[in-house]
Amino acid sequence: MVTVTSPTRHRAATEGASTPPVAGGRRGGTARRWWWFAIPAVALTIVFFALPFLANAALSFTRWTGFSNTISFNGLDNFISLFRLGILGHATVVTVIYAVISMIAQNVVALSLAKALQNTNRINSVFRSIYFIPVLFSPLAAGYIWAALLDPAGPINQAIGFVIPGFDFPWLGNEVSALIMVGLIDGWKMSGLVTLVYIAGLNSINRSVVEASVLDGAGGWRRFRSIEVPLLAPAFTFNIVVTLIGAFSALDIIFATTKGGPGDATKVLNVAVYSQYGQGLYGTSSALSFMIALLVIVIAIPLIWWLRRREVHA
């Protein structure tokens, strides 16, 4: 006897076999139940990010000073004033240079350390911990330590003095070297953290790919350039974005070393914000803060987009 099965019934039976026997309503209920766990994260984001950002954005367009008890809308006056004073352009340029120096320093140092400390063994674990210690320092403490080390009469110049007698270069007193130095100090402080990310990235690369390249005769440099660097793309994305964007919020290290000087050579946006705020000019200070947020958005979004594309290609 031949049993004829309708195509419809057959499809339903097949789907039934591959789909968990969960009623549609019950599945939706399960999904909704998980939403409660998102509430803390959403609430924190709203309270500590969205609301301050919106408040800052609104206050950027107000005449808000310590000289008056009233606040009034003043359009773009704060931004025009900051531009006229030369603060906006100068502080933005200094901030970008500082961020780039810091980002390059962190990633170059961290990638080198990651390669050196890639294998997990007792000695490498000790060194990983040692290199991570600066991350735990207070940025102010780190700044004060480096200010003492870089003093013209400090230990670094004294060490150089063994080779070049009388060497007393003011590392933090020269406008070019000061900016480089504060960027490098930030890089030094945070590179331990970035190193761990690169180590994790290196260790997640499939060993068989590396071994195959060895069998094909690839040397160490070729393996690094052609296999590890492309496959580290997600780590590069994370580290480059985090280090670059993190440097835009620089303040404490600069305060502890140069206070924005000499002159205004290291006056990054946050130092300018502090300076305006200290004079009772809260509206212009808010406008500068808003500029930092915009700067981060303008740089971060294309950068992440580009780096993510690299990941896809890799």
Partner: peptide
Amino acid sequence: SRHHWGRAGVITAAVGSLT
């Protein structure tokens, strides 16, 4: 035209809405 408000009022209002 410029509108004037008390500080606490404006800061609170700024949190609530932008313009």
